[in-house]
Structures are given as structure tokens and as C-alpha cells.
């Protein structure tokens, strides 16, 4: 499928512990899919495996970004192929300013030696920061160093908006956010929705999906999708709780 993020029968483990078990999912471009599920079910592993994290081993299966197979590629190659991961716990990079970091990421996407339009870059950066209600002073702060939880998540969304990937995986982006920050971050994501981007939103709680309304909701349990539905599935899950998943869906 040329215009989709396709994950096919993915089996992956950390050490000798299997986590993803024949995981399959397709996110067509232009759609927002949510993955919900209890802790320890493999949601974060899925995001790391797709991004090529070296700690995980893929036993079998494939994943495609618009038809390009990405499993086994280096993380930077996967990123440049168009997959972005908004981290649940983004790393600090002391001494590297946000402005320089995003700039380096954009330069890495250009042909080697191509000129960089710094003026246009800053104009865009400032516009996106305004949209995310981030102070201009933020550009000269070091990446994630001394950031509050909300600032870190906003910084992830700023990078997402600047790098404009084909597909973005948002890993528990709502964790650590108060309601105002949640609204701002969601507005950022919603502004990016459109025919050119697909989103995979990983979350434990339904709350985020009030703001980023998904096209499809998938319930993950023990390393695979056990149930899929429309946005109302998230509400059902909220109401019945994950015990319902354990009792009914896991058996299926």
C-alpha cells in the first residue's frame, strides 16, 4: 500500500522476552488511529521497534512507510523515510539549543552541501512556537534540559511540526500534561491533520482522544491488536475499564 503505514505480523522481543506477537496494523495517510491498552501490553515497544531502537530484536514481520520497508534500517534512515516518534521520555541534550537541534535535523534531510535558508527557518520556527504558545526564549534553551513535563511534550510537538513527517507515532504524549497543555498540544497535532500525514496515537487514557479525535481506535493486549472500532470504542473502554479487555477480548 503506497499511501499507508503498514505493519505486518511483527514479532519483537527485548532480551529473550517476546513483546510484540504477530502485530499487524494499517494506518492510511490522512487518518488518526489510536492504540489503547493497559500498561505492559507492548504499546511503547511498538513505537520503539518501528523507530529502529537497537535494544529490541525483531524476529519476523515487516513494516512499510508508503511501501518502503523500514524494519532493520538504522533509526536515522527510518526517520528520514518519514516516520517521526514523539517520545514519552525525551532525552536531554546539554549544550545544544532547540533552534540548533531542529536546524540540524532539517539539514540532515537536505542534499549534502545544499544551502540552508536560515531566515525562512526562523520565521517558520517562531510561527509554530506561537501556535504552541511557547516563549521565544525557548529557542536558546538546551534540548529538554530542565524542562517541565509539559515543556518536554510541547517541544516534541514543535519538532513534529517543523519536520513534517509522513507518519507520526505519539507515545503517551498526554502523560505529564495538565489540561491547558493538553489542549495546546492537541491543537498542534490537529493543525497537522490532513491528507499528507497519518498519526498513530498511543495512550493509556481516553482523555487525550477528547482533543485529538481518532478515526479508528485499536485495543492492544499482550502484544497484538485484539479489538478495533470507531472513536466510540474509546468511550466504551473508559466506561468498562481494562478488566473488560482482559475478560472478554483477550479470549477472542
Amino acid at each position: 500500500m503506497p499511501d499507508s503505514l503498514v505493519i505486518k505480523n511483527l514479532n519483537a522481543s527485548i532480551g529473550d522476552r517476546p513483546i510484540l506477537k504477530d502485530f499487524s496494523l494499517t494506518v492510511p495517510k490522512g487518518e488518526v488511529h489510536a492504540i489503547m491498552g493497559p500498561n505492559g501490553t507492548g504499546k511503547s515497544t511498538l513505537s520503539k521497534v518501528l523507530a529502529g531502537h537497537p535494544d529490541y530484536t525483531v524476529q519476523s514481520g515487516e513494516a512499510f512507510v508508503d511501501g518502503e520497508q523500514i524494519i532493520g534500517l538504522e533509526p536515522d534512515v527510518i526517520a528520514r523515510a518519514g516516520l517521526f516518534l514523539a517520545f514519552q521520555y525525551p532525552s536531554e541534550i546539554p549544550g545544544v539549543t532547540i533552534a540548533n537541534f531542529i536546524r540540524a535535523a532539517l539539514v540532515a534531510r537536505q542534499a549534502k552541501g545544499a544551502p540552508f535558508d536560515a531566515k525562512a527557518y526562523y520565521a517558520e520556527l517562531y510561527a509554530k512556537m506561537d501556535a504552541l504558545k511557547m516563549d521565544r526564549k525557548f529557542t536558546s534553551r538546551f534540548v529538554n534540559e530542565g524542562f517541565s513535563g509539559g515543556e518536554k511534550k510541547r517541544c516534541e510537538i514543535l519538532q513534529l511540526m517543523m519536520l513534517k513527517p509522513k507518519y507520526a507515532v505519539l507515545d503517551e504524549t498526554d502523560s505529564g500534561l495538565d489540561i491547558d497543555a493538553l489542549r495546546i498540544v492537541s491543537e498542534g497535532v490537529n493543525a497537522m491533520r490532513g491528507p499528507d500525514a497519518g498519526f498513530l496515537v498511543i495512550t493509556h487514557y481516553q482523555r487525550l482522544l477528547d482533543y485529538i479525535v481518532p478515526d479508528r481506535v485499536h485495543i492492544m493486549w499482550d502484544g497484538r491488536i485484539v479489538h478495533s472500532g470507531g472513536k466510540e470504542l474509546a468511550l466504551e473502554l473508559e466506561e468498562k475499564g481494562y478488566d473488560w479487555v482482559k475478560k472478554d477480548l483477550a479470549k477472542a
Partner: peptide, 10 residues
């Protein structure tokens, strides 16, 4: 890994 996820080579 974080930096490479943004597209930078190792």
C-alpha cells in the same frame, strides 16, 4: 537514539 530519530546519522 533520540537524535537519530530526528534524522541525524550516528
Amino acid at each position: 537514539f533520540y537524535m537519530m530519530q530526528r534524522g541525524l546519522s550516528e
